[in-house]
Simulated scan of single mutants.
Amino acid sequence: MEARDPDAIAATLADDVVFRSPVAFKPYPGKPITAAILRGVLRVFEDFRYVRELGGDGGRDHALVFEARIGDVAVEG
């Protein structure tokens, strides 16, 4: 994401990835839909950067916390 390379992003996703968002009403399972969502994010977010990494017990669950801008609005996710 930080390199803004949609092909590299898609290549790193697991086939069984699930995209979850606090602004979406449901999870989106699968690599194709997750890659499409992240391509859209690249078009909207500016100054994207990761600020923290979270991991659950056993290494199964994982999340990356980010900061970015949408115009003049700062966002974190």
Rank of each mutant, 00 (worst) to 15 (best):
Leu42His: 07
Ile33Asn: 06
Ile70Asn: 07
Thr34Cys: 13
Gly58Met: 05
Val65His: 09
Ile33Cys: 03
Arg60His: 10
Ala35Ile: 01
Asp47Trp: 00
Phe48Asp: 02
Asp16Cys: 03
Leu13Met: 08
Thr12Ser: 15
Arg60Thr: 08
Val18His: 04
Val18Cys: 01
Gly71Met: 10
Leu42Arg: 03
Ala74His: 11
Leu54Gly: 00
Val44Met: 08
Gly40Val: 08
Glu53Phe: 10
Glu67Ala: 14
Phe25Ala: 14
Thr34Gln: 04
Ala63Val: 11
Asp72Val: 11
Asp16Glu: 12
Arg43Asp: 15
Phe66Tyr: 15
Gly30Val: 06
Asp47Cys: 05
Leu54Glu: 13
Ala35Arg: 02
Tyr28Lys: 05
Gly30Cys: 07
Asp16Thr: 09
Ala68Trp: 02
Phe45Met: 10
Glu67Gln: 14
Val17Lys: 06
Ile70Glu: 07
Ala35His: 02
Phe19Ala: 03
Pro29His: 07
Ile37Val: 15
Val17Glu: 01
Ser21Thr: 03
Thr34Val: 07
Tyr28Phe: 14
Gly71Ser: 09
Ala74Thr: 14
Phe48Cys: 01
Ala74Phe: 04
Glu53Leu: 12
Asp47Pro: 00
Arg43Ala: 15
Leu38Trp: 11
Leu64Asn: 09
Val73Glu: 13
Glu53Ser: 13
Val44Ala: 11
Arg60Trp: 05
Asp47Ser: 14
His62Asp: 00
Arg43Gly: 13
Val73Tyr: 11
Val41Met: 13
Val23Met: 10
Ala36Arg: 13
Leu54Asn: 09
Ala36Ile: 00
Arg69Thr: 04
Glu46Phe: 00
Leu64Gly: 08
Ala36Asp: 12
Arg52Asn: 12
Arg43Trp: 01
Gly55Ser: 14
Val73Cys: 05
Val44Cys: 08
Val51Lys: 03
Leu38His: 07
Pro32Arg: 01
Val23Phe: 14
Ala74Val: 12
Tyr28Thr: 07
